[in-house]
């Protein structure tokens, strides 16, 4: 089973980024063969629709579960309609988040958070407020 984790860096020792659409990387962990792959999030610098762009990348990777902090309404709708489960996690190392997931300690995210919540902190520099 492939799991994608929104992260600040590109390996298992990086911190999980609680923002979905505006995170730097997705670390993808395959629980069957233990392989790790990381992809740079093309949504981080998007003018708008960051979450949608990020979700498209994850859909293309054939993952079955996503671990992140919060997710906006657009990306959430996409994963719901694609039967991909989204799990909520606090900020911790990606390695630990995956471990928590395997132990069944993570809760499934049932509702989308507010739109544009991941802006600011310098990551959303390219955002123009949708105007």
């Amino acid at each position: 089973m492939k799991i994608a984790v929104s992260a600040m860096g590109d390996d298992l020792n990086s911190m999980l980024d609680v923002r979905f659409g505006r995170c730097n990387y997705f670390v993808i962990y395959d629980s069957e063969d233990g392989l790790i792959k990381s992809i740079e999030n093309s949504g981080q610098m998007a003018g708008g629709g960051a979450g949608v762009a990020a979700a498209q990348q994850i859909l293309d990777e054939d993952v079955e579960a996503v671990i992140t902090g919060n997710m906006g309404p657009n990306a959430f709708r996409l994963f719901q309609s694609s039967d991909i489960k989204v799990y909520r996690c606090e900020s911790m190392k990606v390695k630990k988040a995956v471990q928590f997931f395997n132990e069944g300690k993570l809760q499934e995210l049932n509702t989308a958070g507010p739109a544009h919540a991941g802006m600011g902190r310098g990551a959303g520099r390219g955002f123009r407020g949708g105007r």
Partner: peptide, 18 residues
């Protein structure tokens, strides 16, 4: 360029506001 269209396994989804 505006991330308004997404391809899933089943269909292409439009986010009309984008």
């Amino acid at each position: 360029q505006f991330n308004a269209l997404v391809k899933t396994k089943k269909e292409v989804i439009l986010f009309e506001k984008l």
